[in-house]
Nucleic acid binder design. Structure first.
Length: 500
RNA sequence: GGGUCGUUAGCUCAGCUGGUAGAGCAGCGGACUUUUAAUCCGUUGGUCGCAAGUUCGAAUCUUGCACGACCCA
């Protein structure tokens, strides 16, 4: 830590915080202010699951002693009796506090404790007259004083910016947000289990690359002092994972972060999570089957169904359609003729008419792809594999044996967004070297997203890579789909933000 | 990068065609022994995002900047 960092930053103080600091000072003077000797034995969620249905009389007969702890979210002081609603990692449970249970002194102290304080209680489970499972507290402790007031108890935290910047407040106050991140964890776990069951090995490859590769994107650059060399935060793990296939790891996957130095939006965060997987002796057809299988598997596990809602509209994950780029264009634009869609000049004009940027390339496939992006992509609501991508935009994919200029590649679209991208891998080292050279030419021509020539990767291919299929699935976007989140920032715990 | 909207008490929000700031929650004091966003009475709390301009006077009008949300690229 530098000297500068050690100085306490200016904190916003106000009357409420000052009053709470005074309370904390009094607690310090009375003894240990932040005790850690309380042994919690029960959690709210399981107590409610276990005893929530029991009647008042049944509970009296059972006489269940519990030790619970959590953050005080609601407080109702009624003179000789008080109630506190306490939230732990599993749910909420109510404390009933009176002089007989905890003694007049502790009860009086409790009346000055604040919302947000971390409390612990021992006591006996009972049901109130209104039927709420509660703890009749016999021992009550303040474990952590909260100095800052929580967001308003009813409306919670409404400010989107504060939700993202102070995610802990969002998690404390917003059950929906907590649920989203629990689901995210389950989705990642489900994906991992599915791949392992398919015989895949999970690996970790470098996040810092001497040559950025595996995708067309702008990288973040950093510097290694001891080696005095530039390093790039990876834009994709692809080239390393395929080196592993060369090395004989025939089914590998990695779930990890990629970094792309591009604009931010509701669909883009500078760092995002992808799963990439590679399988020897497989092709893009097999990759589509796996992609469909893993998405359906986690959807069943997390949503309980393949028929889900996204932003108020139904999505049917039970069937994944397959269309070529031209088929997809025609499906949503039946007025286009085959002649028009194979006419370079007409395509160029139509792309601009549809709102796209003018396209410089003369490749028919590239022009069709640009038109597809303008007039079809956003309409692909139910899962759809788009196949037959032109070779000029697929520098790592294997060219089709039947159709020159077309690669054995697919992208998966759901709710109008790209969710996955896969192909039969290019394993011809001489073809790969030529593709890299073509990329370098594009880079020299000013395209700063074009790829570098990765000589070690070509060398690896020269040792011989088996025919291989590969695919990447955007985990953040998958989580968005399955948690009904409108923005990628809603599924990333700490999304990237500007300086406050 | 462009457009639209927003930024007022710790939080959620009012505040009209300019006249110097308001509610609810939270806090503080009081009443209340099964409450449920507890209720009731009293009360503290503000550089109205920042800066400049117009004006006798700006939360309010104008411009710029910062940050955010949404849409478009």
């Amino acid at each position: 830590m530098s000297e500068q960092d050690q100085a306490l930053p200016q904190q916003d103080e106000n009357q409420i915080i000052a009053e709470r600091r005074a309370k904390l000072k009094a607690i310090r003077e009375a003894g240990v202010a932040f005790p850690n000797d309380f042994k919690r034995e029960h959690q709210a969620g399981s107590l409610i699951a276990q005893f929530g249905d029991k009647s008042k009389e049944e509970l009296e007969g059972l006489n269940i002693e519990v030790a619970v702890a959590g953050r005080m979210m609601l407080k109702r002081v009624m003179g000789k009796a008080s109630f506190a609603t306490v939230q732990d990692g599993t749910g909420r449970i109510q404390f009933y506090i009176n002089d007989q249970g905890v003694g007049a002194e502790t009860h009086a102290a409790f009346k000055h404790w604040d919302m947000g304080d971390i409390l612990a209680a021992r006591g006996v489970l009972f049901k109130t007259n209104k039927g709420e499972l509660s703890v009749n507290v016999t021992e009550l402790r303040l474990l952590s004083k909260s100095l800052r007031p929580l967001p308003e108890k009813f409306h919670g935290l409404a400010d989107q910016e504060q939700k993202y910047r102070q995610r802990y407040l969002d998690l404390i106050t917003n059950e929906f947000s907590r649920d989203t991140f629990v689901k995210r964890s389950k989705i990642v776990q489900g994906v991992r289990e599915y791949m392992v069951a398919e015989g895949y090995l999970e690996v970790e490859t470098p996040m810092m690359h001497p040559i950025p590769g595996g995708a067309t994107a702008k990288p973040f650059v950093t510097h290694h002092n001891a080696l005095d060399m530039a390093l790039y935060l990876r834009i994709a793990p692809e080239l390393y994972l395929k080196r592993l296939v060369v090395g004989g790891m025939e089914r590998v996957f990695e779930i990890n972060r990629n970094f792309r130095n591009e604009g931010m939006s509701t669909r883009h965060n500078p760092e995002f999570t992808m799963m990439e997987f590679y399988e020897a002796y497989a092709d893009y057809q097999r990759m589509m089957e796996l992609t469909e299988g893993v998405i359906q598997s986690v959807a069943r596990a997390v949503c309980g169904s393949l028929h889900i809602q996204y932003q108020g509209k139904p999505v049917d994950l039970s069937r994944f359609e397959r269309l070529t780029i031209v088929e997809a264009i025609k499906k949503y634009n039946p007025h286009y003729s085959d002649e028009q869609l194979s006419d370079r000049a007409w395509l160029k004009e139509e792309i601009v008419r549809a709102g796209g940027k003018p396209v410089l390339t003369d490749g028919i496939g590239g022009l069709q792809l640009s038109l597809f992006e303008e007039v079809a992509e956003s309409q692909l609501w139910n899962p759809t594999f788009i196949v037959d991508y032109p070779v000029e935009v697929s520098p790592l994919a294997r060219e089709s044996d039947q159709h020159k200029g077309i690669t054995e590649r697919f992208e998966l679209f759901v709710v109008g967004r790209e969710l996955a991208n896969g192909y039969s891998e290019l394993n011809d080292p001489e073809d790969q070297a030529e593709r890299f050279l073509s990329q370098v030419a594009q880079k020299d021509a000013g395209d700063d997203e074009a790829m570098h020539f990765d000589a070690d990767y070509v060398r690896a291919l020269e040792f011989g890579m088996p025919p291989t299929g590969g695919c990447g699935i955007g985990i953040d976007r998958l989580v968005m789909l399955l948690t009904d989140a409108p923005s990628i920032r809603d599924v990333i715990l700490f999304p990237q933000m500007r300086h406050e």
